[in-house]
Measured scan of single mutants.
Amino acid sequence: MGFKLLSKLLVYLTASIMAIASPLAFSVDSSGEYPTVSEIPVGEVRLYQIADGVWSHIATQSFDGAVYPSNGLIVRDGDELLLIDTAWGAKNTAALLAEIEKQIGLPVTRAVSTHFHDDRVGGVDVLRAAGVATYASPSTRRLAEVEGNEIPTHSLEGLSSSGDAVRFGPVELFYPGAAHSTDNLIVYVPSASVLYGGCAIYELSRTSAGNVADADLAEWPTSIERIQQHYPEAQFVIPGHGLPGGLDLLKHTTNVVKAHTNRSVVE
C-alpha cells in the first residue's frame, strides 16, 4: 500500500471513529477524501466538511520552486461564519470567499490569524475590503508590521502568557507558548472536538522541520505538551499544512522538532 493511500485511509478511519463516538456532533463529509496538494491548482481553494458547521479550507501556493498546501478553518456561528487564517495570499483568499459563498452561503463576518507569517495573514486586506472584521493577538499584529505583512485590524486580548485561553464565538483560542513562531495560536472547536494546530503542528508525513527561522526550538516541545494537557479530548487535529489526523500529530511534531534540534547540535 502506497504512503499517500495509507495517509488518506488514516484520515478516513479517524473521521469514521469520530462519527461513531459522537453521532450528534459529527456529520463528516462523505463526498470524498481530504484534498491534497496535487489536486488543488494554485489560485483555487477546496472546502472539506469535518463536522456539522465545521470545515477546513485548503489552498496551495508556490514557494521556492515548489507547491505547498495550506489549511485553515471555518466555523459556523449562528447565521454567520468565523474564518481562521487566510488562504495564503490575496488571490487565494478572494477564491476562498467565493467558494464559501458557493458552498455554504453564509457571510464571513470575523477572521482570526493564528500567527504573523504570510500563509496566515496574506489576504487580510481582501477580507477587510469584503467587510470582514480581522483579528490577531497584539504580538501577531506587531510582528506582521515588522515583517511588512498585512496586519489584522483588531487585537485579541488575554493571550499574552503561555497557557492563556479565551473564548471567541464558537471557538476557544489558546496560546501554548512559542513553537513554530513566538505568537502562534491554537484554535479548538469544543462542539466538535476539532483542534486546529496551525503551523505549530505537523502532518504525519512530514519528517523535516522546514521553516524554523522564527521558531523557538527549545520551547516548542513544552508548548505541545500544554496543548495535549489542555485538549486531551480532541479527536480531529488539523495541521497548518497537509493531512489531518488525531492527537498523534502532536507527538510526531515533537519528535521531528527534537530530531532537528539534535542534528543542529551535532553539526
Rank of each mutant, 00 (worst) to 15 (best):
S208T: 09
A59E: 08
S155D: 05
I58A: 07
A234F: 15
A179L: 02
H115K: 00
F116A: 15
S137V: 10
L195I: 15
W220E: 00
A19S: 07
D214W: 14
T207M: 11
G148Y: 08
S160K: 15
G148N: 13
V67G: 06
A165C: 14
T109A: 12
T254W: 09
L156T: 13
R142F: 11
I20A: 07
V124I: 04
L73Q: 01
L97K: 04
D119R: 00
P176K: 02
S139N: 04
E203W: 01
E267F: 14
T253Q: 00
Q49P: 11
S31T: 07
L83W: 01
E33V: 13
E101S: 08
F168K: 03
S181C: 01
V28H: 15
Y188W: 06
S155T: 11
R141W: 04
G89T: 14
I227M: 06
S7T: 06
K258A: 12
A51D: 06
A19D: 15
W88H: 00
S27G: 08
Y175F: 14
G197Q: 01
V112Y: 05
A25T: 08
G246M: 07
N211V: 12
A87N: 03
A165N: 15
A213W: 10
P221G: 11
V108H: 00
P190I: 04
S193W: 07
N149E: 06
D216H: 10
L24T: 10
K91M: 15
L156M: 12
F174G: 02
T109E: 12
P41G: 09
R120N: 14
C199P: 01
H117K: 00
E147P: 11
T93C: 03
T134Q: 01
G65S: 09
K102P: 04
T60D: 06
F116I: 03
D248L: 12
L10Q: 07
G78C: 05
P23E: 05
I74D: 02
A178P: 12
E233K: 12
V112I: 05
G2D: 09
G72D: 02
P190L: 08
L249W: 01
G122T: 10
F116H: 10
V189S: 10
S137M: 10
G78S: 06
I104Y: 04
A200Q: 14
A200P: 06
L5R: 10
P152S: 12
T114L: 00
G163F: 10
M18C: 04
L9R: 09
P69E: 05
P41Y: 14
A178D: 13
D118W: 10
S193Y: 11
G78I: 10
H260T: 12
E99R: 14
V212S: 11
L247V: 10
L81I: 14
A94C: 14
G148L: 09
R142Y: 10
E219C: 04
L143E: 08
D118H: 06
T86N: 01
S208D: 09
G198R: 02
S139T: 14
V132C: 04
L217V: 14
L97Q: 04
Y12S: 10
S113K: 03
M1S: 03
R110M: 04
L81D: 00
A165M: 10
T261R: 12
P69S: 05
P176N: 01
G89L: 03
G158D: 15
P23D: 10
T207R: 09
L10I: 06
K251C: 15
L96C: 04
R226F: 06
S113E: 04
V171R: 02
V75L: 10
A129C: 04
I238Y: 14
Y202M: 15
G32A: 06
P221N: 15
E101T: 10
S191I: 08
H180G: 00
E39H: 05
I17L: 04
G2M: 15
I74M: 06
W55E: 00
V256R: 14
T36N: 08
T134M: 03
N184Y: 01
P244D: 03
V256G: 03
D216V: 10
G169F: 13
D29T: 08
V132Y: 00
S181H: 00
T14G: 03
C199A: 00
E150M: 15
T207P: 11
P176Y: 01
K8F: 15
A144L: 09
T134D: 08
Q235R: 11
A178T: 12
G197L: 11
A59M: 09
S160F: 11
G148P: 09
N262K: 14
F174T: 04
E233T: 08
E80D: 13
A218H: 11
S223T: 13
A66E: 08
D79T: 10
G53T: 05
Y34E: 13
P41W: 10
A15V: 13
G122P: 03
D214V: 13
M18A: 04
G53W: 09
I227C: 01
Y196L: 14
G246K: 05
R226V: 12
T222A: 11
D79S: 15
I50H: 06
N211K: 08
T261K: 04
A66L: 07
I58K: 09
Y196S: 03
L156G: 02
L243M: 06
Y12V: 11
S27H: 07
G197A: 08
T109C: 04
Y135K: 00
H154K: 05
E145F: 14
I20C: 07
G169I: 03
L13A: 12
V257L: 15
L127H: 02
D52F: 06
M1D: 02
E39G: 08
A259P: 09
G43Q: 10
G242M: 02
P35T: 06
L13R: 07
D216C: 06
I100F: 02
L247H: 14
V171Y: 00
H117W: 00
G148I: 15
Q235P: 12
Y12T: 13
T153H: 15
E172I: 15
V187C: 01
R120F: 01
A19W: 08
S56Y: 05
V257D: 00
H252N: 15
D214P: 15
S27I: 05
A59D: 10
E99C: 13
H252D: 03
A19Q: 15
A259D: 15
A87Q: 12
G177L: 01
H180M: 00
S7V: 10
S70R: 01
P170M: 04
L97G: 03
T222S: 10
A51T: 04
G210K: 10
P69Y: 08
T153V: 11
Y188D: 01
F174C: 03
K4S: 11
D119H: 01
V265H: 08
L127M: 11
A51C: 12
S113W: 03
L143R: 10
I104H: 02
D248I: 07
F26P: 07
N211A: 09
V126I: 06
I17F: 04
H180F: 00
A94G: 13
L9T: 07
L173D: 00
S181Y: 03
G43W: 09
K8Y: 15
S155E: 09
L97F: 04
P138F: 05
V171C: 02
E172S: 12
Y196I: 02
P190R: 10
T153L: 09
L5P: 12
E99W: 13
R167K: 07
E219P: 09
Y175P: 02
A111W: 03
A66G: 06
R46S: 07
P107T: 09
N255S: 06
V132A: 12
F3Q: 06
Q49E: 08
L195C: 00
Q228R: 10
G53E: 10
Y188S: 11
V187R: 01
E219W: 13
V132Q: 01
A192Q: 12
V237E: 01
S113I: 11
T140L: 02
C199D: 03
E101V: 14
S162V: 14
P23N: 04
L9Y: 07
I104S: 04
K4C: 08
T36V: 09
G43Y: 06
D85P: 00
A51L: 08
L82D: 04
E267L: 07
D52E: 07
D118M: 07
P23H: 05
L83C: 03
R76P: 03
E99A: 13
K4P: 05
I186L: 10
A87Y: 00
L204D: 15
E150G: 11
E101Y: 08
G210C: 04
G240H: 04
N184K: 02
I104Q: 03
A21V: 08
G177N: 00
D64M: 09
E150N: 12
T254V: 09
S27C: 09
Y196D: 01
P41E: 12
T222W: 11
G246P: 05
V37W: 11
G177M: 00
P138T: 11
E233C: 10
R120Y: 01
A19Y: 14
A98C: 06
T60A: 05
V37E: 06
F3K: 07
V194K: 02
V212P: 10
H241N: 00
A90Q: 11
G43P: 05
L73D: 02
S161D: 13
A94W: 14
